[in-house]
Design a protein around this nucleic acid. Structure first.
Lengths: 132, 132
DNA sequence: CAGAATTTGCAAGTCATTCGCATTTTTTGC
DNA sequence: GCAAAAAATGCGAATGACTTGCAAATTCTG
């Protein structure tokens, strides 16, 4: 494992929420070229060390976000606040059953699913209402 | 409503699956500039005539897909086949209940959610297994 | 530690999408 | 209907996320 890959994985493991490439490049622990960040993330994802999803947000456009995969972490889903742009883990995936049902109903092989919520988090809601 | 917008809405209403901008531009019924397609779709979406979601697929990259909103159509979710790239409607949204639960549990205001499945459809599975 | 294999940095390229601006179309008031 | 005002369109250039070719640097193998 190279320095670049190690540092990316370390940062993702410490992170409490998914990080974009922009987040990673801005992190001083990540001392490598942007192209290397992309290439390393692809490697880490192929090896199963990280997970990613693509999220579109009006403010930040369409970006891919990465999370480290840990032994204890189940496949999680996220809420994204369109005001503060923070993510909240809404818990591990509850869809396993539904996925099986869809597979048998339609004859699919479901290899992946994308699910996330967007809206305004409690903190931002309070700030908005209190200041008008 | 201008010609461009009318033609886009007409094509989307006839479509049996979500269409990308590339699909729309390639359609001979759509006789306008690509920039107009983007601008018109934004307008149609703001007015509530169409719905869209961003899907990432290895073959086609990240693209936004559009569907017409009709009176009878509930908010649907889709399965995307990574082989033939066709979409299948897996039925109207079953998440309403869960969304309420998450809202009260975390204090969010959920304004939107993204959900779709990817994998291989029955037809493509059969083709793959029969031809090796 | 040498040589082979892989990764990295850099700069240029791709692709979906947006934007500025002049022109055309649509809408509004009459 | 029609002229003026408002909005939409076409074109081409720009943006931003992400990829790629290639030479140099790093990592792996024995």
């Amino acid at each position: 494992m190279t320095k670049a890959r190690k540092s990316l994985l370390a940062v993702l493991k410490e992170a409490v929420q998914p990080l974009s490439v922009a987040d990673l490049v801005a992190n001083p622990q990540i001392a490598c070229n942007q192209a290397t960040v992309y290439r390393s993330l692809r490697y880490l994802e192929q090896q199963g060390y990280v997970d990613s999803f693509v999220l579109h947000c009006t403010d930040h456009g369409t970006e891919r976000y990465y999370c480290a995969v840990t032994e204890k972490s189940a496949h999680s889903h996220w809420f994204h606040c369109t005001v503060c742009h923070r993510f909240t883990d809404v818990g591990s995936c509850l869809l396993a059953e539904d996925l099986r049902r869809w597979e048998s109903q339609y004859g699919f092989s479901i290899t992946d699913h994308t699910f996330f919520l967007t809206g305004v988090c409690q903190t931002c809601k309070e700030l908005t209402t209190s200041t008008g």
